[in-house]
Simulated scan of single mutants.
Amino acid sequence: MYHPRLKGSFYESGKHYAEILYKNGFRFPKVTEEKLRFGESCRTILTEFDPHVVKEIQGFSQGCHSSFEEVSSFLLSIGVFELDSQCSIFAVFNGKEMIVGRNYDMLLNLKKITESSLVCFEGKNKYVGHSDCFIGKVDGINQHGLFVGITSVPHEGIKPGLNFYFAVKYILENCCTVKEGVEVLKRFQSSVSNNYLLADTSGDMAVVEMTPHSYRVRTPANNYIHCTNHHEDISLCESWNWSKSKERFHTLDIRLRENANKMDLSIAQSIMSETKGHVCLNLKKHNFGTLFSVVANLNTLDINRAEGQPNRAKYIKDKRLISAVLKEEPNLKTKYN
């Protein structure tokens, strides 16, 4: 797993990171004509939604000696034409603190390209975000204790729009609360189907179920909420349940119900390491499984990450976000110690 630190302007940060990758042998992959056409149909939507990320892509393109058209089309096409990530996520408010857990499940041979980035762009929220791609995020926690993460859901057809990478990144950089994040997703023109789980330090949490044609907010009936790879009120076709989405959802529900009021990082780690109920996924037949796991206390910004399957890999504390916040606001030292 890479651990980049991105700071400064969007353009210069994108360019600098691409230059590092290029120097270490990265060459931008060939983009098909189909994806180039799709990217062209989406670029205006991207510019209107987030002009800052356009600058970042322009910088990255220059740094890796590729074209803006190729890089943007590659990013915009992810999840539209091929198999995407699966994943399990939960949030629990134990009465005092918000605890979140997230397992990222994907093709096992992509483990080496996963990233955990500390992002400190000028004029934006600081955050730690995770991804399997050089621009955009699949989850993250920002300096205000706002968490957002996605799971993929099957969709039909191809419609111009934006994928989850851009939504998660934008929310982390610009929002402080669940309500603000939900408002962003209300106007988000999605090209794929996802669950977005959002949680903040106040105890607020929600799952936004999105498709290219619909939008629904699911709120918790108790003091916890979770999602896997289907929408709660829509039956899941058996051809998609190869990743054990129903089983993982059911296992999470049982464990969260039993432990919600006493939830802490240790319990969260044990839940995400669960193999019997497939929360920690290992499907060798499909070359598919959990690539990394993250648990966090949003109120204290404590982040623990296992880089690999959490039933085997050790959870390690990530103090980068706390250090970045304290560097700018040293008066908060007592809060995070």
Rank of each mutant, 00 (worst) to 15 (best):
I45F: 08
Y22K: 10
E328F: 10
L46M: 12
I171S: 05
Q189H: 07
R257S: 13
C42H: 01
R305S: 04
F49W: 02
F164R: 10
E209S: 05
D253C: 15
N109S: 10
F49C: 12
F74W: 14
T219W: 01
C42M: 06
Q143T: 03
K246M: 07
S214G: 08
D253V: 13
C120V: 03
W240M: 13
E173D: 15
L236A: 14
G63E: 06
S131H: 08
E56K: 12
D302N: 14
E209T: 08
Q62K: 15
S73M: 11
S73H: 06
R218Q: 04
A260H: 11
S41Q: 08
N229E: 04
R218N: 09
K7F: 12
Y315T: 00
F166N: 02
N259K: 09
V148Q: 10
I150C: 05
S245T: 09
Y127L: 10
R320D: 05
E70C: 09
L256E: 03
N331V: 10
E40G: 05
S266D: 15
K327T: 13
G289K: 00
H144I: 07
V178F: 03
H52A: 13
H250A: 14
L6S: 01
V119Y: 02
K159R: 14
H144C: 11
R102H: 15
Y17T: 08
D204M: 04
I254F: 15
I171C: 08
K314F: 15
N194M: 14
N311A: 05
F81H: 10
L118G: 12
D264L: 03
S245D: 06
G123S: 11
P154Q: 09
L172F: 05
N282M: 05
Q269H: 05
S72V: 14
E34R: 14
D139Q: 06
Y104R: 00
R248W: 02
R27T: 13
A206K: 11
I89N: 02
G145V: 11
V53N: 06
W240F: 15
F90I: 02
K96H: 12
Y336M: 14
L321Q: 01
P160R: 01
N163L: 09
